[in-house]
């Protein structure tokens, strides 16, 4: 544990912040502009993981394990979320023969 923390601290904190900010923005843009629902799900995962990375980094720098515990929780929740999301995708593919989210506007009423 000690070694991992010191290994993380080799790289300055700013780098982590910039990296995870970039990853988060990429994910956000993907969510906003992609129409493929699978890509959107993947982008959401990307946003999750950028946040996880940041949490881990701060946890190491602050010597507070709570941040890393939190990451585990997020991973578990994300796994569940992916399971649900992918099953929706499967159902969508079966029903409309497409993964384009704009076809879902038929759900409005």
């Amino acid at each position: 544990m000690k070694e991992i923390s010191s290994a993380i601290q080799i790289i300055p904190l700013d780098y982590y912040i910039v990296l995870s900010g970039t990853l988060f923005s990429i994910g956000l843009m993907g969510v906003l502009f992609r129409r493929n629902i699978i890509a959107i799900l993947m982008c959401i995962e990307l946003m999750f993981n950028s946040v996880n990375l940041l949490l881990t980094a701060f946890s190491a720098y602050h010597s507070d394990p709570a941040g890393q515990v939190f990451v585990f929780f997020i991973m578990i929740v994300a796994a569940a979320e992916v399971a649900v999301g992918l099953s929706i995708v499967v159902m969508m593919k079966r029903n409309v023969e497409s993964v384009d989210i704009n076809l879902l506007n038929r759900l409005k009423w």
């Binding site: 502009f33 959107i40 989210i101 704009n102 506007n105 038929r106 759900l107 409005k108």
Partner: peptide, 9 residues
């Protein structure tokens, strides 16, 4: 409320 997912997002 036009059902456009990307607009919602």
């Amino acid at each position: 409320q036009q059902g456009n997912m990307s607009f919602y997002l």
